[in-house]
């Protein structure tokens, strides 16, 4: 099973309320978030509105406010909240024994499982 999940390091490297980035060669950069109640989420680092880097937004609850135009994006679903309409792909994430794992195929497939698994 480990082969399906990419170990991206210990939870301690993201402080609560912050996010860090994970560039993917040939793919979309990923933002990994640590919320104030100690949950972890990963999204493609691109606001559905004007492609703002969500990793740089303020995190409150399980929502991030985009730094460019203050769209609120659900970290859980990737959907824009309120009156705004749009969606950013999410990356399945799990935490085990203090380390963060991302679903490999979602990392490589830009958040959506690739049509064909090589």
């Amino acid at each position: 099973m480990i082969g399906d999940w990419l170990d991206i390091g210990p939870v301690s490297q993201i402080s609560p309320g912050n996010a860090r980035t994970l560039p993917v060669r040939g793919g979309e950069e990923i933002a990994v978030f640590h919320t104030l109640d100690n949950r972890f989420f990963a999204l493609v680092n691109r606001c559905p509105h004007k492609a703002g880097p969500l990793s740089q937004g303020i995190v409150h609850g399980d929502v991030v406010t985009c730094p460019l135009h203050a769209w609120n994006i659900s970290l859980k679903t990737g959907k824009a909240l309120g009156d705004d309409d749009g969606c950013v792909p999410t990356i399945p994430l799990r935490v085990d024994a203090g380390r963060i794992y991302l679903l490999r195929e979602a990392v490589l497939g830009g958040g959506t499982p690739p049509a064909k698994v090589a």
């Binding site: 990419l6 170990d7 991206i8 390091g9 490297q13 993201i14 402080s15 912050n18 860090r20 980035t21 994970l22 560039p23 993917v24 060669r25 040939g26 793919g27 990994v32 490999r104 990392v107 490589l108 090589a118």
Partner: peptide, 22 residues
């Protein structure tokens, strides 16, 4: 420093073996 650095980089290889650069 963590606000500026990427936490890691994913570099897919053609063999579909991925390496992490921390």
């Amino acid at each position: 420093a963590e606000l500026h650095q990427h936490m890691a980089e994913v570099r897919p290889f053609p063999t579909n073996v991925q390496q992490m650069e921390f």
